[in-house]
Design a protein around this nucleic acid. Structure first.
Lengths: 145, 145
DNA sequence: CCAAATTCGGACAGAAACATCTGAATCTTT
DNA sequence: AAAGATTCAGATGTTTCTGTCCGAATTTGG
């Protein structure tokens, strides 16, 4: 394909950012997330279940149930979400696909690629979902309205 | 999963770099590439066929047949290979997975991500396989020996 | 207590990516 | 001309990812 993260992971990122928009302890059911973000209902259910198991979310059954963040939004970085769903494999993998490529036995583009990966990683670790959600509120970011 | 390029694309990158190591017009059969690079024989066959169709390689049947570069190594960049196999989708895609994310309707990390993508793209376009192959010759790069 | 809304858990279905198989076509060498 | 090595083309199999379905468990409100 040629995409950095899996579909699941993208859905997870969107969902967590969306939940971060709700500042009170309000619960959001799958149905709402599914509609607003246009993500398949049952598929999203699995993903949220997974994030709940990993501790990023908290769930509640029954009417008025749903999901909310399990940790303060400020403490959840994009890296946390990616790690929970896809793992951090991308941050060590070789562009050319050599399994043994490493600092001791590098491929010819190892150092340059390493820098890219580290930049990406730094960005993911530096962005918490509170910031992201706050930005999405601003009029110039219309995707979640 | 969480990898930048598809398996096919990684195999293609490796194979083309390997072929760039052979400076004379010598043909290399699939069997040799498959063994040296540890790539499944028939799968690699398809990929080389594809690269041949795209003009990056030239093939010849029969004994003494095989594949060689179809363009001078210096003119083939890593970007050319990626484009031939995976396409350049990654260079425009949104990290959060929003389909409509763009300059006019950005997500909250659009600008930062755009910079990452552009850096990656620049690196892929600036690296030609002659350089890469030459580096792989050097003793500090042992992966292809 | 009951009905309705929700998550939970497991099985299943479909699509895409990865890989293999087989026979045909082509080329080289003898 | 024959034999062997190779690519080519299409069909098929396998695995992983994506998505669906259903029934059970839980919670709320009447």
């Amino acid at each position: 394909m040629s995409v950095i993260f899996s579909r699941q992971c993208e859905y997870a990122l969107q969902a967590v950012v969306f939940l971060a928009l709700k500042q009170n302890g309000e619960m959001t059911p799958i149905k709402e997330l599914s509609k607003k973000l246009d993500i398949p209902y049952h598929f999203l259910g699995k993903i949220l279940q997974d994030l709940t198991y990993k501790g990023l979310l908290v769930s509640l059954k029954g009417p008025t149930g749903g999901f909310r963040l399990g940790i303060p939004a400020k403490k959840i970085t994009l890296a946390h979400i990616v790690e929970a769903i896809d793992g951090m494999g991308f941050s060590t993998s070789c562009v050319l696909g050599f399994a043994e490529c490493s600092g001791e036995k590098p491929c010819a583009v190892h150092v340059q690629w390493k820098e890219m990966r580290e930049r990406i990683l730094a960005m993911l670790m530096n962005k918490n979902v509170l910031e992201v959600a706050a930005d999405m509120h601003k009029p110039e970011y219309q995707l979640l309205h």
